[in-house]
Simulated scan of single mutants.
Amino acid sequence: MNHDAAPSMAEPAPAGVMLIGHGTRDTEGTEQFFQLACQLDAVLGRRDVPLPLAACLLEFQEPTISQAWDALVARGVKHIHVAPLLLFAAGHARDDIPKALATCQQRNPDVTWDQAGPISRHGAILDLLERRIGEVTGRLDGLELDRTALVMVGRGSFHPCAQADMRVLTEVLARRMNFAVHRTAFYAMAEPKLPEVLSAVATDDITDVIVQPHLLFQGRLFDAIAEQVAEAGQRYRGVRFHVAGYLGPERAIAQAIHDRVLCTLGFLA
């Protein structure tokens, strides 16, 4: 990836941040993305040298990456820290976003950019996931942890590294929360699929199954996962199935994005 030379520590160029969301046709999910952008703007504003922020969406809606680029350039930004709002690095982070940015840079060859990594297993994300799962366990009467299965379900990706990261995330959370029975599932593009995993864990030894959709916001995917869990509940009447909440526009995610940007800088803009 050719980003040109970044500004030196001695003479830092005016820098800004571009937050790139995936985009969704769901109105609530879109609103939540921009709520998160406000959270991130507040975090960036606390810095000694505040970084201007432009939020945009990769698909389905505006503002686009091109529009966000132009907005930052209009504010005098000469170096853009690109923060993809992605849980794992896959095709969008590796291909689609860099291509779009390279096209933008052709209009402004004097403007440079770098790209932060996915928020993945940042400590704030792990803490937030524990909270979401804890919201379920805390309201269940008579829960026996040794007879409860945790199923983490991701959107899914053809990229093997993204699949592996999802499986590692499940292992880390299961150890932190003492779930002896735990599985990773995917909604699409990877195996095993969620219905197969739900059938596998619905045994005589299991009384409860907690499904954590590893998603950022409300959308059709969250609804589809909840529907598959409800269908499993109809098939396996002796097991209680529970759907935990998605991550949501939380300050913890804004902090994780901020920290990923800092890791990318090489200098503090």
Rank of each mutant, 00 (worst) to 15 (best):
233 G>F: 00
223 D>K: 09
145 L>Q: 14
109 P>T: 15
64 T>Q: 11
35 Q>F: 05
174 A>Y: 07
94 R>S: 06
2 N>M: 10
42 A>L: 10
195 P>Q: 06
268 L>F: 08
250 E>R: 15
173 L>A: 10
149 A>H: 09
205 D>R: 13
190 A>H: 05
219 G>R: 04
154 G>I: 02
138 G>I: 06
103 T>S: 12
132 R>G: 06
98 P>C: 13
268 L>I: 13
190 A>C: 11
113 W>R: 10
198 L>C: 07
30 T>L: 15
197 V>H: 03
142 G>T: 04
208 D>Q: 10
178 N>E: 14
182 H>K: 10
199 S>F: 00
195 P>N: 07
119 I>P: 01
91 G>I: 00
165 D>G: 13
246 Y>T: 13
35 Q>A: 14
94 R>H: 13
55 A>S: 15
179 F>N: 12
55 A>H: 01
89 A>T: 12
82 V>S: 04
118 P>C: 11
2 N>H: 08
209 V>I: 05
41 D>T: 09
36 L>G: 01
155 R>N: 05
65 I>Y: 04
45 G>E: 02
34 F>Q: 07
32 Q>T: 00
41 D>R: 14
189 M>Q: 13
117 G>D: 08
154 G>E: 01
240 R>N: 14
30 T>N: 15
140 L>E: 06
66 S>G: 15
207 T>L: 09
32 Q>M: 11
39 Q>P: 01
191 E>H: 01
141 D>K: 13
14 P>N: 10
204 D>I: 05
175 R>P: 02
143 L>F: 07
74 A>F: 00
139 R>P: 02
26 D>W: 07
172 V>H: 05
5 A>D: 02
89 A>F: 01
249 P>E: 06
95 D>S: 12
167 R>C: 08
42 A>V: 03
103 T>C: 11
43 V>H: 05
208 D>C: 07
171 E>S: 14
222 F>G: 04
89 A>L: 11
128 L>K: 09
166 M>W: 05
188 A>V: 09
124 A>V: 00
28 E>Q: 14
232 A>T: 04
152 M>V: 14
123 G>E: 08
129 L>P: 01
